[in-house]
Design a protein around this nucleic acid. Sequence first.
DNA 1: TATTGTTATACTCTATAACTATA
DNA 2: TATAGTTATAGAGTATAACAATA
Lengths: 141, 141
Amino acid sequence: MPEYADDELAAHLRAAIMRLRRRLVQETDSELSIPAMTVLGLLHRRGEQTVGQLAAAERVQPPSMTRTVTCLERDGLVARRQGESDRRQVVVSITEDGRTRLAADRDRRTEWLARRLADLTPDERAVLDEAAPILEGLATA
Amino acid sequence: MPEYADDELAAHLRAAIMRLRRRLVQETDSELSIPAMTVLGLLHRRGEQTVGQLAAAERVQPPSMTRTVTCLERDGLVARRQGESDRRQVVVSITEDGRTRLAADRDRRTEWLARRLADLTPDERAVLDEAAPILEGLATA
DNA sequence: TATTGTTATACTCTATAACTATA
DNA sequence: TATAGTTATAGAGTATAACAATA
């Protein structure tokens, strides 16, 4: 039987997301901000992307992405170059330093959550394993 | 078979939480801020609480909760009063206006998510129904 | 003219530090 | 002294508006 009435699932899920997000931010010990880390991850998985593509993928406005990319470039973790076919575009790529930092940081950043997950029962972990791609789908629908 | 390797579940879950939270903030059309709405919900469910209890429940520092409560009081949605046994404490309670606003806002605020949930298959909804309390547990563990 | 990205500016939520008042 | 809450201040992440360069 379902845990919540239909109307309540959305409310409870929303509350859980908000609290868990704050917890993830608080418990994280990393030199990389969350947006920076996320962009590095995107570039690692998808290869080089324009600022516009990155902004769309993360659903932020272009100025927010410009800011994140500027920080990453200053730290030598990504490189900017002018688009070839369309010279208005700015193509962003991850550097070797970026990949190194990504790997190191990914571990630290997910450590708290990974420990919490390890405390769950196998059944609970299985539920979250199924839930993760569904949540991801909700975010990008 | 699991969707993700052990190490990857935490990383994917974290990314999904971050994106979904931003989406929830963006798609929300409401007069109440998210912290304000959450505090009203707490007072509704638990009855009156001290500022310290509210801060602990939401895992924010006392000054952050003071700020939220001050906004809510200015709008007449909660009332403050001095604690009886310990006069350093401030007891916060929800007003009738607060309950009315909470009900109206809860619908608006969860509307986007509720619509998204309605688009899922029954199986997917069932997974999230099981996942919600587990996520809540992670946030407060 | 329309679009890509940047700069300038402001807002929201959060935190830490210092303070007030009670205990 | 120690604790509950507030005030003052700062920082991170986001947005909108105005601008530059290119299509």
